[in-house]
Amino acid sequence: MKFTIYKDAKGEFRFRIVATNGNILASSQGYSAKASAQNAIDRIRSDAADAAVVDETTA
């Protein structure tokens, strides 16, 4: 898995989480600064291991 940072058509920085098979798993919001996109990636990387899974499919 990897993160890719890119600039969108509006010139904002965004990132994608890309699976090893090339499928895009998630895309971010736009950021005005590349550092902000990198900070969001860093936060995901540090917090994801402890993230809870919430099953909202049951009543």
Score class of each variant (00 low, 15 high):
residue 54 V to I: 15
residue 29 Q to T: 15
residue 10 K to T: 04
residue 3 F to C: 04
residue 11 G to A: 12
residue 46 S to P: 00
residue 20 T to Y: 03
residue 15 F to T: 07
residue 32 S to F: 03
residue 6 Y to Q: 10
residue 31 Y to R: 10
residue 58 T to F: 01
residue 3 F to A: 06
residue 2 K to Q: 11
residue 28 S to V: 12
residue 46 S to F: 02
residue 53 V to Q: 08
residue 17 I to H: 03
residue 27 S to A: 09
residue 45 R to A: 09
residue 26 A to M: 11
residue 12 E to S: 08
residue 54 V to Q: 09
residue 8 D to Q: 08
residue 23 N to K: 14
residue 47 D to A: 14
residue 13 F to Q: 05
residue 26 A to N: 11
residue 22 G to F: 03
residue 8 D to M: 05
residue 3 F to E: 04
residue 40 A to L: 04
residue 46 S to Q: 13
residue 59 A to E: 05
residue 3 F to P: 00
residue 57 T to H: 02
residue 55 D to R: 11
residue 9 A to L: 05
residue 40 A to Y: 04
residue 36 S to N: 13
residue 30 G to A: 06
residue 13 F to R: 07
residue 24 I to R: 13
residue 6 Y to H: 14
residue 30 G to C: 02
residue 11 G to D: 07
residue 4 T to C: 03
residue 6 Y to A: 05
residue 25 L to Y: 03
residue 8 D to Y: 03
residue 48 A to M: 11
residue 29 Q to M: 13
residue 50 D to N: 13
residue 19 A to E: 08
residue 19 A to S: 08
residue 56 E to F: 04
residue 3 F to W: 07
residue 58 T to C: 00
residue 34 K to E: 15
residue 39 N to F: 07
residue 57 T to F: 02
residue 35 A to C: 05
residue 53 V to R: 11
residue 16 R to I: 01
residue 45 R to T: 13
residue 9 A to D: 10
residue 21 N to A: 03
residue 49 A to G: 13
